[in-house]
């Protein structure tokens, strides 16, 4: 059998295409099959933008996010690492952990745009997240306390209450209440 496409080489490759439940079959030579295969793929592999270019584009063209994109706007800079807002807009990379505080207003909408959220809900590291870890534990103990009271398990309730007091005392002595946002920067 000859290739349906070029009618020259033997058809060694059989393609079965299923589109919307319709089956299409074709017999092709290896050369044609590869060409068509590559064509099919090129749809999925449109020249991939690098993430940084993508970000830079997002920052530049969105007036709400990228006001400092124009060279004539000085823009803020990070007091810790010295990164200028302009640089961030251009490269899409932050300079240090403190940049998240320095450019918070600009970052929040950007993070929401990228992730659909601007609030971390994952892992809390043991040391760096110490106060937050305790705060979350107290929160969970308070829930248990309410539950215990509801079930009239008063002995257990007293135990839980004491544990909460202990934790709250620890946190005060540690001197660091978890503040609204930036635990560790």
């Amino acid at each position: 059998m000859l290739c349906e496409r070029c009618q020259q080489r033997p058809a060694n490759v059989h393609l079965t295409e299923i589109t919307n439940g319709q089956k299409n079959e074709s017999n092709l030579c290896e050369v044609c099959a590869r060409e068509m295969h590559l064509q099919g793929l090129s749809f999925n592999f449109l020249p991939q933008m690098s993430l940084q270019n993508f970000l830079a584009g997002l920052l530049k063209h969105d007036p709400g996010i990228g006001q400092a994109a124009h060279a004539d706007v000085a823009g803020k800079s990070c007091e810790k690492c010295g990164l200028m807002e302009r640089q961030f807009v251009k490269q899409g990379l932050l300079g240090c952990g403190h940049c998240y505080k320095s450019f918070e207003e600009r970052l929040e909408p950007l993070l929401r745009r990228i992730h659909g959220s601007s609030k971390h809900s994952g892992k809390v590291p043991e040391r760096a997240g110490g106060p937050l870890r305790q705060a979350r534990e107290i929160e969970s103990l308070k829930n248990q306390l309410r539950e215990a009271i509801k079930l009239e398990e008063f002995e257990r309730a007293v135990e839980i209450r004491d544990r909460i007091r202990e934790l709250e005392k620890d946190m005060k002595q540690g001197g660091k209440q978890p503040d609204a946002g930036q635990g560790n920067i």
Binding site: G97, P125, G129, P178, Q182, G183
Partner: peptide, 14 residues
């Protein structure tokens, strides 16, 4: 580690 309660682990690229 560079970590914030609000944003989690702080990375070079957002």
């Amino acid at each position: 580690y560079a970590y914030s309660e609000k944003f989690g682990y702080l990375t070079a690229c957002p």
